[in-house]
């Protein structure tokens, strides 16, 4: 015990002890190995719940159809039935409480995402009816002539 050789050993042990005490207070109690083992599953379990509680913003057509049945029906009977309302109207979030009004994107740039013609074989893109945005009434909003809910019917 009196040996000067052993003295550093006590210092090391005390340091290790202090680290363990600090670790006990710093590491959350639910931190551990879970289903995917030590290599992939070493984490704080409550973080999974935190991610699951993330706010859903895109509510899909099922959320829109009860209050806007006319728009829903007219859209569902057209070729544009594959497009979600929220793709153009923006995420519903908690509409009508928050936001009370959705901002409709009427911009040309929205339509030409699909309808700017690109001559691509082996892609569905070439099969969509497309225009050259530089030639086809440049500067005008598509909705001036085309009904986005029911594009089969020309005009409004």
């Amino acid at each position: 015990m009196k040996s000067h050789v052993l003295r550093p050993l006590w210092v090391v042990l005390v340091v290790i002890g202090l680290i363990l005490v600090a670790r006990y207070f710093v590491v959350p109690p639910d931190f551990g190995i879970y289903e995917r083992g030590f290599m992939y599953g070493f984490h704080r379990k409550s973080n999974e719940k935190e991610w699951e509680a993330f706010k859903v913003k895109y509510r899909t057509k099922t959320y829109c159809k009860d209050c806007h049945p006319d728009k829903y029906e007219s859209n569902m009977s057209s070729k544009h039935h594959v497009i979600q309302c929220e793709n153009c109207h923006g995420p519903a979030i908690d509409h009508p409480e928050n936001p009370p009004k959705l901002t409709i994107n009427r911009k040309r740039s929205l339509c030409i995402r699909c309808h700017a013609y690109l001559p691509y074989p082996t892609s569905q893109r070439a099969k969509i009816k497309g225009i050259d945005p530089k030639e086809h009434n440049p500067g005008m909003e598509c909705v001036t002539c085309h009904n986005p809910h029911k594009p089969d019917m020309e005009g409004w």
Partner: peptide, 19 residues
């Protein structure tokens, strides 16, 4: 399905706003 994708990018827009 890469045959079906037309490159409209609605997925990217939705992902960015949702998340």
């Amino acid at each position: 399905d890469t045959y079906k994708c037309v490159g409209c990018g609605f997925c990217v827009k939705a992902c960015k706003l949702e998340n």
